[in-house]
Design a protein around this nucleic acid. Sequence first.
DNA 1: ACACAGTTTTAGCCGAGGCTACACTTGCGG
DNA 2: CCGCAAGTGTAGCCTCGGCTAAAACTGTGT
Lengths: 154, 154
Amino acid sequence: MKNKSFLRACVSVMAKLPKVNRHQRTRADHSTELAEDYVEAVAELIEAHGSCRVTDLAEYFDVSHVTVNRAVARFQRAGWVTTKPYGPIELTKQGTQLAESSRRRHAIVYQFLLALGVDEKTAATDAEGIEHHVSPETLQRMEQFAKQANSKSR
Amino acid sequence: MKNKSFLRACVSVMAKLPKVNRHQRTRADHSTELAEDYVEAVAELIEAHGSCRVTDLAEYFDVSHVTVNRAVARFQRAGWVTTKPYGPIELTKQGTQLAESSRRRHAIVYQFLLALGVDEKTAATDAEGIEHHVSPETLQRMEQFAKQANSKSR
DNA sequence: ACACAGTTTTAGCCGAGGCTACACTTGCGG
DNA sequence: CCGCAAGTGTAGCCTCGGCTAAAACTGTGT
């Protein structure tokens, strides 16, 4: 009952917002999502193994090496990574920057979910999905909240 | 400085988690994302206009009517909606249920972001992107937080 | 009753992201 | 130094989500 009126309130609030164009952003995000995952992975794998090969990424994402290969070619065209035939994958300056900010965002979202009381496993999974859709402003709020919660528990 | 060690901690925590298979869920979500958006829209449009036509959806999502048409055909095959040639789009029982839960989730995420201090416009945009990636557990935490914040401000 | 405007469908294009099967390099061990 | 396993690249297929152009259908108004 009480819950229902709460819900109704939410819906009515949102009804006032423009509906057209709300989805553009979502679609635009899609195109960079995979790129972010990839540069993040490349950075991690280089840290862990010293280098990043197609196979490593295929295993990491649990997709075929062919898929990785094509994706890497695209990201090379886009300027995030560099590769020579049969050689390892490296990050460009841009790629490194993207990886950094991506990992930072990921870490913040994850810590935030923990601070919210979500358990570790769920937080990890949800963070994967959520990280790409968090605006700088929201991210800042999340960081603030996580820090606050952190200092309180200490 | 302090920020950096915080970050390092986050990363090290996540490093302990299994990496393979973390992305399956993200990919699986993708396939239902659009379906959720569609049934949500269909429900809204039926409420608003009394019926939902291809053109309405095309305008709503700002895509061509052709794209909508093909998507609707797919969702019909999947059992979310029904349509007769040149007729309006209706929700199946399943579709209605999906729409309900989708809208509820959307509303909660949106209210949650507001409670976190994010401004209305950003919250609306981010909610669009985030809603599809929130697990039931996280959603529950968000609802709890939003309610708490709401009662405090009252 | 029929023309015409508006809506829906069909045909056919593109790129992304998935796959299998097969071809080609690389580099290591005998 | 050569063969073979492992890694990488290529060809070709699928679905999904975009698009335009053009054909087919409704339904309204004169």
